[in-house]
């Protein structure tokens, strides 16, 4: 083998091995490398009350309740499998709304409520002008209103 071919084989093998190793290893690091727990992950994760974690998912439709003190809100975070009640006192991000993604920083209370110290809004991959969003919402509402035969 000429030195040139030796270098080709060596460099090619090194890069291939490295990429394959990463493709195999990284998805397996889900628990370690994830930024937050989804509600369904939380049961399996063995989180003790008071332990600082992040909980992320969608703000469940119709779950946001403003408390009489004017600053506390209660809502549920869902991943469509499980929903976890959350309590938060403070300013919410601009994009915080029902049906949108949210990540809460805080810890579980012993009664199963998540006490959030801060909220981040999570944005999804959809971008559209307001008119398109309105038209979509209207079409959806009409589809719901139509009687099912």
């Amino acid at each position: 083998m000429k030195p040139k071919h030796q270098r080709l084989a060596l460099a090619g093998a090194a890069v291939t091995a490295l990429i394959v190793a990463v493709l195999l290893a990284m998805p397996a690091m889900k628990a370690g490398a994830s930024f937050f727990y989804a509600p369904a992950d939380l049961a399996a994760a063995n989180v003790t009350p008071g332990q600082a974690i992040r909980l992320g998912g969608l703000v469940e439709e119709g779950s946001v309740e403003r408390q009489p003190d004017g600053i506390t809100i209660h809502f549920r975070v869902t991943d469509r499998l499980e929903a976890i009640p959350v309590r938060y006192a403070g300013l919410v991000p601009d994009l915080f709304r029902e049906g949108q993604g949210v990540i809460a920083d805080g810890s579980m209370d012993p009664d199963g409520t998540f006490a959030a110290d801060s909220l981040l809004a999570k944005h999804d991959e959809n971008y559209m002008p307001p008119e398109v969003a309105d038209a979509l919402a209207k079409a959806e509402a009409e589809a719901k209103a139509r009687p099912v035969l």
């Binding site: 690091m29 889900k30 727990y37 991959e125």
Partner: peptide, 11 residues
């Protein structure tokens, strides 16, 4: 896709 992230997935 592998992990839960704050950043949204590809559009």
């Amino acid at each position: 896709e592998w992990w839960n992230t704050l950043h949204q997935p590809a559009s």
